[in-house]
Design a protein around this nucleic acid. Sequence first.
DNA 1: GAAATAAGTCAATATGGCTGACATAAAATT
DNA 2: AATTTTATGTCAGCCATATTGACTTATTTC
Lengths: 149, 149
Amino acid sequence: MRQGIELLFFAYRDFTAEPDAILTQYGFGRAHHRVVHFVGRRPQMTVGDLLMILKITKQSLNRVLGQLVRQGFIVQHRGAQDRRQRLLELTEKGRELERQLSAPQRARVAAAYRKAGANAVEGFRKVLLGIIASPDDRRRFDRGKPARR
Amino acid sequence: MRQGIELLFFAYRDFTAEPDAILTQYGFGRAHHRVVHFVGRRPQMTVGDLLMILKITKQSLNRVLGQLVRQGFIVQHRGAQDRRQRLLELTEKGRELERQLSAPQRARVAAAYRKAGANAVEGFRKVLLGIIASPDDRRRFDRGKPARR
DNA sequence: GAAATAAGTCAATATGGCTGACATAAAATT
DNA sequence: AATTTTATGTCAGCCATATTGACTTATTTC
């Protein structure tokens, strides 16, 4: 049991180390990576969506998001049905950043998958899904189809 | 691939949420948890060992470690062979804190293991081991026998 | 005796969280 | 039509955690 807990610690530590180093060159931090990742993954998501995913406060998000918008990595535009919403989208510059940041992570996970085999990957997914607290968040992983909220 | 990356994010987020809430009551943060965890797991470890595991600077560690020592969660004593070293150990108070912090994590991981089954747990371990960068760190998980450094 | 190592310390800085209070615009409700 | 709720943004201040760089002390190794 303790080993499982430590595996998560070490794996997460190494999983974030490479993108962190790249982010430093941009003057960004891990928070920027998370925003770029999720906006890239689900374009047209709202600020509220992002807040629910990251589970941080609006104020914390806004500092990071504001920087990304001002520096041209993300664009915002008003929602069509609900004009209060700001729909978020990566610019080409943002997509490039996303690719750069995710490259080492994809490589690391791909290598681990390859070494462990398809059956192990299935188990990895099952256990991590079980660790995720909320059914809504688990639903994001239903066969590639993200939950709507 | 992207799903694997996000699974790690969500699982780690929820994996740390409960202990974080407990730590707040002590005026502590996640860094204190990590120190208490690893000292609990390997009593008599040195400050240098801890630095290599956590991959943070001596100055960062010292603030947290100093608090834990001053408040009686950890005791230090000089090494027998090498008297420059400070061997670390949890006090009873420290062990109690460690139990309290790890309880929700153990429960969460145990539930996930139970739901996923033994075969899935094997896969989970294999993939996470593959994600860990350093062979030395991977060696910590060799059949329950932690690496010496 | 000199050099290297383990640990500790001081100071300054950055990042990313937090709370609380408040503002604005648009949508929903009554 | 007026009121309330919601989505977003913003100001100000606080705290925890990390960093770099410089320096000290005690001890071990060469």
